[in-house]
Amino acid sequence: MVNTEINIENTAAVISIKDLKKSFETNIVLNGIDIEIFKGENIAVLGRSGSGKSVLIKIISGLLKPDSGIVKVLGREVDKLTEQELQELRLKIGFSFQSSALYDSMSVKENLAFPLVRNRLNLSEKDINIAIESVLDDVGLSQTINQMPSELSGGQKKRIGIARTLIMKPEIMLYDEPTSGLDPLTCIEINNLIMEVQQQYNVSSIIITHDLTCAKTTADKVTMIIDGKFLVPGSFEEIFNEKNENTKRFYDYNFINKK
């Protein structure tokens, strides 16, 4: 496969979304989303279940098509790309699924090798093994290399899912509910891993989450989808100091009710 380098200046937005709309039959999910994310910036997107958070990152990665609006990733308009161009762009995007989405018929090693073998045809088997060991070391799971996904815990699956995206050295990471279904200590480990990934790989991230601790720890900016639109992104304090009933209820549930 041809690996087309997509150059982008640090000042340009790596993700730029203008007036994005998406509905499913009569259900309007996204109703005019605008946002720009710059190189190295990390933004957490909050919102109720079914508010369209996952739909947003699926549109960014080209898994879903928008009804209208402009979605540019690394300067390329996603829904205007040919199949080949989209495939090349996706090599720059890492997508960590809520369910981890590990290939359950393959071992951890085969899961990690899968995208590498098919997209970096010039790599030798030795190079591939080195890359796998390195990325497993980065997520702290070197010992699981020969295990099957069914033998891993929920937290380990999430880590391997992240490792599978990191092996392609992405410029953008999209996390879909990275801490959902995990115990608090594992959540802390995943949050730390997200921060390590941001520093070590210098990626820009969108973190879709319900978990305010995750949002506060991992993101530079926070926003929330309400009625298909974004709140103006700001720091965690800015967003939750606003007198907005939705953000207040989110905050109260996460921090006050847990006291």
């Binding site: 990665s61 995007i93 699924f97 369910s99 989405a101 997209n119 392609m168």
Partner: peptide, 21 residues
Amino acid sequence: AELGSMKVTEQIDAMEVSGTK
């Protein structure tokens, strides 16, 4: 069953976003 299971557990989506076919 195999492909259906891969589809509903997003494994096919995961292959797609990793730039493979």
